[in-house]
Simulated assay, not measured.
Amino acid sequence: MIADRRATLPMHARRVLAYLSLQKLARPDCDRGQLAERLWPDSSAERSRASLRTALWRIRCADPEVVAVDCERVSIADDVAVDVHRFRTIAEQILAARTPDDFPVAPAGLPSVTDLLPGWDEDWLLLVREQLRMLRLHALEHGAAVLTAHGRHPQAIDLILQVVDEEPLRESAQAVLINTHLELGNVADARRQFDDYVALLWSQLRLRPSPQLVAVLDTTR
């Protein structure tokens, strides 16, 4: 959307916008030559730079303020709103929270990033998807641990179950869930969760749980 109107751009221009938007999570701008090479790796340097020039021209025709361009560097403009940037800000605020009142939004509302640019299989996009997915899992885990520490056990269980459902072999998430059951006094539920995890871990990876996780349950014997 540009000034509340939908802008239609060709695919090569959309790829440039997507790359610049996502790469701004790590760095403010990109070298033009590197950007051209990254987005058109099968073309010659001259041809890839020409493709980049055309894409930038199409973007600037739609709105000259969307990208900042000079002879060496190109970047998405600072005042362009990018959903992924807001997602990262919220996730980082959840990770920094020490009480539920510190949450910028309910952690359960942190969206999944598996549908980020669906149908695209760019190598650079696969890496960003995985980075954001891991950030979300860490934020949900931390949010559940904070809720547990402040006695909000049902909300904590609902939250951590999202992580366990997505990554059942993730021991840190299993530990939060087991600890929450124990905080509620539900030793049987904690033991059942632990036993199910041990069985799954062995069947899938032929691994045993860490001594730290085993020690959590040992206190209940």
Rank of each mutant, 00 (worst) to 15 (best):
T148D: 02
V187R: 12
V105A: 05
E65A: 08
R170E: 11
A139V: 12
S48D: 11
P154I: 00
R206E: 14
W120E: 14
D4G: 05
V128R: 03
G119A: 03
Q162A: 04
V214N: 09
R221F: 10
A7R: 12
D79G: 02
H150S: 02
I90P: 02
A108N: 01
D115E: 13
W202R: 09
D121Q: 11
M134N: 14
C30Q: 15
V82L: 06
F103H: 01
S75M: 11
R49V: 07
D158Q: 12
A77T: 04
W57V: 02
L52Q: 03
S172M: 07
D79Y: 11
G185S: 04
P64R: 08
R86Q: 13
S203Q: 15
P107L: 08
V146L: 04
R133K: 07
T8V: 14
L147V: 06
R5M: 13
T219E: 14
P100A: 04
Q23A: 08
D31M: 09
V82E: 09
R191G: 01
V80C: 14
S48N: 14
R170A: 08
H138C: 06
R136F: 10
E183C: 09
T89F: 02
A36V: 11
A145I: 03
R14S: 10
H142N: 03
M11F: 00
S172N: 09
C61R: 09
T8I: 13
A149N: 08
L207N: 00
L132M: 12
L20I: 04
R152D: 04
R60L: 01
V66T: 14
R15H: 14
D79N: 12
L52C: 10
E183H: 06
D165K: 11
I2V: 15
D42F: 09
D121P: 01
R88T: 14
R152H: 04
L205W: 00
R136E: 05
A175M: 12
L9N: 08
G119M: 11
A188V: 10
V67W: 02
E72F: 08
H142K: 05
V176Y: 00
A199N: 10
A175Q: 11
A175P: 00
L95R: 07
A77G: 12
P100T: 01
V214Q: 14
D70E: 01
L9C: 11
